[in-house]
Design a protein around this nucleic acid. Structure first.
Lengths: 112, 112
DNA sequence: CAGCATCCGGAACGATACTG
DNA sequence: CAGTATCGTTCCGGATGCTG
């Protein structure tokens, strides 16, 4: 049962440091689905504060997962789009979705 | 709302509530590689405290991802093994590993 | 060996108000 | 519209010590 190559602990830890925030996955979900604007994303994520959304978007930008395009018009318009690196996350989300659906993970299972 | 099936936000959030802890992924990595004993896992994860390992293992047990087998001998021996549900996480870890390797995610990229 | 109890710090998160 | 500023809170995780 030894297949060390399948999951390097250091890699998994590093990846989680990049996309492991509470809202990061939901945000990326939206972007994968085609959303791009700040308010659009905010509206689809019930409960997120503008502060956290802003922070996570900045973080994702710094990590090269999304790009931030400011379109100079009135009212101001900013579009966030996935880079190739970001789009490459799709299989990961599919895996999450498949697992969650297969095992019917729907509630915030309480532990601890 | 195109390709909504690929990543349901609620599903992703729920899944992350189950396996989104700081140490959960590294722990599962170990179990996928074949480790099973408390100390064994602890030794492979540099820096984890027994408290957190214990807490995460309990959580994973409660969520049906691993089983806890107490073997009554001296010294006491406890084995943690993945359930079918847990083993089914393998594709998810492969996706993480693939993405992390492809884009060379190695450091704890600091943002914020 | 395999944990649990307790205390504690700091990061992450949340709510609200305000701005270019 | 797309954020920033400020404040307050929660909770994860670290350190240590003790038990069967």
């Amino acid at each position: 049962m030894e297949q060390a190559g399948i999951c390097q602990i250091s890699t998994v830890e590093a990846v989680m440091n990049v996309i492991g925030g509470k809202w990061t996955f939901p945000i990326l979900c939206n972007l994968l689905r085609g959303d791009s604007r700040f308010t659009e994303i905010q509206h689809h994520l019930d409960g997120i504060s503008p502060k956290m959304l802003s922070r996570r978007l900045l973080e994702l930008t710094e990590n090269g997962i999304i790009t931030r395009n400011v379109i100079p018009e009135l009212p101001p318009r900013v579009e966030y789009r996935l880079t190739a690196k970001g789009k490459d996350l799709r299989p990961l989300f599919q895996a999450i979705g498949t697992w969650g659906t297969t095992w019917n993970i729907t509630e915030t299972s309480t532990a601890q």
